[in-house]
Amino acid sequence: MKEVELLIDFHKNAKRQGPGSPSDTLKAFNFMDISKKKSLKVADIGCGTGAQTITLAQNIEGEITAVDLFPEFLAKLNLKTKEQGLEDKITTVKKPMENLSFDKEEFDIIWSEGAVYIMGFEAGIKNWKYFLKTGGYIALSEITWTTNSRPSEIDQYWNNEYPEIDTASKKIKILEENDFSPIGYFILSEDSWIENYYKPMEERFDDFLSKHNNSEIAKNMIDNQKEEIRKYKEYKDYLSYGFYIAKKVSNE
């Protein structure tokens, strides 16, 4: 089994594929000057198994188009959608985020929690704003430095993993340079990382290794996850996920 297939298998039964919480999702939404009674069109890009998709659908009127490349994740979201009675609100689409085929200014909100890194923050904003109405909102959570300087170990690790990691001021500047007016920003709490993401992940380690017969590739993958967790716990004062909320002010 290839590494990407192992990663999908490991994460497909997880409630979340990255740090976050229902309260984070709602906090981001509440920055937007939108009536909860208005019927909205929302795109949730890189939705994974859809924890935030469900939260949004439970709290807004309208339709959410949930996009992900992996059918295994979408199958889990479809199951949760049916269990929650939200079939009239959520539609899933299997599509790479780099090649979406929505109409110009189709959506009131574009949402993406912990997934824009796949394209890169700036590329995602430049690509997706075409589908967003002028006056509409974008909400993205993205790995972010919370200090201007940090120990070399964590600096080198994350710059190697994701060269676009940067401070919030640099991310906000990118939004401003691409026809957006920032209206809100906050960082995710330690609980959003540990309680909601890493602890459930750690609980899956043994069963996953057993399922894959303790293969070398499976063990390497778990070792990498353990190392990421260790680094977060040691260096959590220097980074988090930043949640960026901005309004599209131009269609140029």
Score class of each variant (00 low, 15 high):
V93R: 04
F186I: 05
E83M: 12
E122I: 08
F208G: 00
D9I: 07
P22G: 07
P71I: 03
D33C: 09
V4A: 12
I118N: 11
T53L: 00
M221A: 08
S39R: 15
I183K: 08
R230N: 12
E252M: 13
S240N: 10
K170C: 10
I174V: 14
S21D: 04
N196P: 09
K133E: 07
S149H: 13
I138P: 00
T92N: 04
A168E: 14
T25P: 05
E195V: 13
N224K: 15
A43S: 08
T144Q: 07
W193C: 04
N13P: 08
V67P: 02
D179E: 14
S152D: 14
I64L: 06
Q52E: 15
S39I: 13
A115Y: 03
K211I: 09
E176I: 06
L86M: 07
E98D: 14
I187V: 12
N220C: 09
R230V: 09
N78W: 06
N178C: 01
F205G: 04
S152I: 14
D103V: 07
F70H: 15
L26S: 06
L56F: 05
I229W: 02
Y232F: 13
K2H: 14
K129A: 04
S21W: 02
L132S: 03
E202T: 07
V4C: 13
S192H: 00
N224Q: 15
P163H: 10
A123N: 15
R230M: 08
S23N: 12
K27H: 12
P182W: 01
G135F: 06
I60W: 02
Q52W: 06
K173I: 08
D24A: 14
Y198W: 14
F131R: 03
L26K: 01
F180D: 03
P19Y: 01
D44P: 01
E252Q: 13
F29I: 07
Y197R: 00
P22E: 07
N30H: 12
